Simulated scan of single mutants.
Amino acid sequence: MALSQSDLLRLMESLRTADGIELIRAVAQRMLQELIEAEATARIGAEPGEHSDARTTWRNGHRDKTLTTQAGDLELAIPKVRTGSFFPSLLERRRRIDQALYAVIMEAYVLGVSTRSVDDLVKALGADTGISKSEVSRICADLDEQLTAFRDRPLGHTRFPYVYLDATYCKARVNHQIVSRAVVVATGITEDGGREVLGLMVGDSETEMFWTEFLRSLRERGLTGVRLVIGDRHSGLVKAIRKVMLGAAYQRCRVH
């Protein structure tokens, strides 16, 4: 399943405004660091510690660099070489990478696309060498562990008296067809006013069964203390709230 650029950016913005920005920041930092290391390997001609006739120089540690983006400061490590110099093409001055970087992250990490598409996106960022299929697969496999940990993390560390539920529809490619898919998001409000993205799920539509499955997954992860659920008046959502969120009041969102 692959979303369009506009759909990806809209979904990213909804996560960013719901304090999901920390996840994007961590993933962006990890992805960018991997791209820097891959470009250094291509420049040197060998992996760290690898014996190769194609090697042109040797690594000589790293130097720290802070990259300021809309997702926050990214702490990066730039490889140093013994002879010559190396500076990642992605970080060249006057190159704006935020929007393209987020597109790479959302495509390759959250939703998953082909390795060829990721290579095209990396080149769009300004990395002339691109990235190999095996490197893309390795990076995405590592990042998938972080996403799984975020989606399955326990929610019993604090109480969320207020929970906002909403859905957006995005065009996606499923089995070689472009179809509309529902992306549902739950945002919790703590007793002291803090916000946290509790979870998200992708389905065919906002049926009662789909919403019920999503809400039960939140309960199973430890969501407790909910006193008020805010959402639209979709019949499937309302029925699921009454079935799963026992003891919690329901209020229609004023925006809707």
Rank of each mutant, 00 (worst) to 15 (best):
Y109F: 14
L121F: 11
Q33G: 08
L11R: 03
R16T: 09
K80C: 12
S134E: 12
A172D: 05
A26F: 15
L35N: 01
R153Q: 05
S6W: 06
R82G: 06
I189F: 13
V197N: 05
L121D: 06
V202D: 08
M245I: 00
K243T: 12
I139M: 03
A46I: 00
D53W: 14
R219V: 12
R181P: 09
D204R: 10
T129N: 13
T148M: 10
D152C: 11
N175F: 09
A100V: 15
A100K: 12
A71Y: 03
I24Y: 05
Q146A: 11
A108V: 06
P154D: 04
L8C: 05
S217H: 11
E196K: 08
E145G: 07
S132V: 08
V113T: 00
M12F: 15
Y102V: 14
E213H: 14
V255C: 09
R94K: 11
E145T: 09
I139E: 00
G130K: 04
A141F: 10
V183K: 03
Q99S: 12
R216T: 11
S89F: 05
V174G: 09
R82L: 06
R93G: 07
R55V: 02
D120I: 14
E50N: 01
V179S: 08
Q177G: 08
D64V: 15
S134W: 15
T168I: 09
D144C: 09
A167V: 00
R138Q: 07
S217D: 13
L218V: 04
G194V: 15
L15W: 09
L32T: 04
D166T: 02
R254A: 10
A42C: 12
V226Q: 00
L155G: 04
Q251R: 06
R25C: 05
I78M: 02
L143S: 01
G193C: 06
L125G: 04
A42F: 07
L237R: 03
G126H: 02
T207D: 04
R138K: 08
T224D: 11
V184H: 04
W58L: 15
E213K: 11
A28D: 07
R93I: 03
V163E: 04
K133V: 13
A186S: 02
H234V: 13
L121C: 09
